[in-house]
């Protein structure tokens, strides 16, 4: 069968299979993000339960919740934009996670970079905001107005952090950032080289995840969970999916900026889970801040710490 092997080998050599690898990455990355995100959600609920001396939910609870919500037999829609909003909320994150390099997969990190990623993650928020707006419920609109204000608050330290890291390594390319951090072991990690920025980043992370004390936009007893007030069934299910992605994105971004990304999956996941556990642990011992107090806090301490960090980075 000489001819057969010759033909097939020639054929293989002629076709460039690199694009296939990329397509595979683009499919795998959101899937992994979702699964890891489910784990993160479970971890958050477990931490909350343990801090309250409860047992907490079983292993697959986040999955059951999502299945149940999607399988609701009657679902309440407030119109096309309500639906499109959820589609955008999920879709935006599915796209955004392909810009985040994970061990062995770079996805589209070279085409986007840090700023593109930051703004890409605003697309789901925009979709959610549109969807909530169409619900014609003022509780939802108040929630969105608070959530956007919160974004204004935590994004100021966040962009300071991103500036500092990008300037320090001289690149906006996440692949390059990770490679530069891994070059010299822990000594070249962002958190060692820029501890002040890492601290400011952790602060911003707390706001980004919308965890206590910064969850005024949900405020269940006051505005009935704000943006989620009219979300039931698959609408709420979509938001649960989005939450998985959101936790993953925030955790991986922090790991990529300060903890040298992942050398392999084991250390990578370990870092991601540890990073995401910090805000949750802090959250459970705090009540919530009012919107203006939150803005004041974010524009004062993390911003000052971040600017100080930049001053060190630039000199």
């Amino acid at each position: 069968m000489d001819w057969l092997s010759a033909v097939s080998l020639d054929g293989l050599a002629a076709v460039d299979f690199r694009w296939l690898g990329l397509v595979l990455e683009l499919i795998l990355m959101p899937l992994i993000a979702f699964v890891v995100g489910l784990g993160l959600v479970l971890m958050l609920r477990k931490i909350a339960a343990r801090l309250q001396r409860r047992v907490g939910p079983p292993l697959l609870q986040p999955l059951w919740d999502i299945i149940k919500l999607h399988a609701k037999e009657t679902q309440t829609s407030h119109g096309l934009i309500h639906e499109i909003g959820i589609v955008m909320a999920i879709g935006g994150y599915v796209a955004a996670v392909t810009l985040l390099p994970v061990p062995g997969m770079n996805g589209l990190a070279a085409q986007g970079g840090l700023i593109a990623l930051l703004y890409m993650t605003m697309i789901p928020s925009l979709g959610l905001a549109l969807g909530v707006g169409q619900c014609a419920n003022p509780n939802g609109s108040i929630g969105i107005s608070r959530a956007l204000t919160a974004m204004l608050a935590y994004d100021v330290p966040m962009v300071i952090v991103i500036f500092g890291v990008a300037f320090h390594f001289g690149s906006l390319n996440l692949v390059y950032l990770i490679a530069a951090q891994q070059a010299g072991g822990i000594a070249t990690w962002g958190i060692v080289q820029m501890p002040l920025l890492a601290l400011a980043g952790l602060f911003a992370l707390q706001g980004m995840l919308g965890k206590q004390p910064f969850e005024i936009y949900v405020a269940p007893a006051e505005i009935a969970t704000g943006p989620m007030v009219e979300m039931g069934g698959k609408f709420l299910g979509g938001l649960f999916v989005m939450q998985c992605f959101q936790l993953y994105t925030a955790g991986v971004l922090y790991v990529a900026l300060f903890l040298g990304g992942g050398e392999n999956w084991l250390t990578f996941l370990f870092k991601v889970f540890v990073v995401t556990a910090i805000p949750m642990t802090i959250a459970m011992v705090f009540p919530r801040y009012r919107t203006e107090d939150m803005v004041r806090l974010f524009w004062k301490w993390p911003t000052m710490i971040g600017l100080l960090g930049i001053a060190f980075v630039m000199n």
């Binding site: 339960a49 409860r54 047992v55 939910p57 007893a221 009935a224 969970t225 989620m228 007030v229 039931g232």
Partner: peptide
């Protein structure tokens, strides 16, 4: 709901608006 009996073990948690609830 809280630590003594912990409904969340059974996957039961409180929700706020009727749209979200079972």
């Amino acid at each position: 709901m809280t630590s003594r009996f912990d409904m969340e073990r059974l996957g039961i948690q409180p929700m706020v608006s009727p749209r979200q609830a079972d």
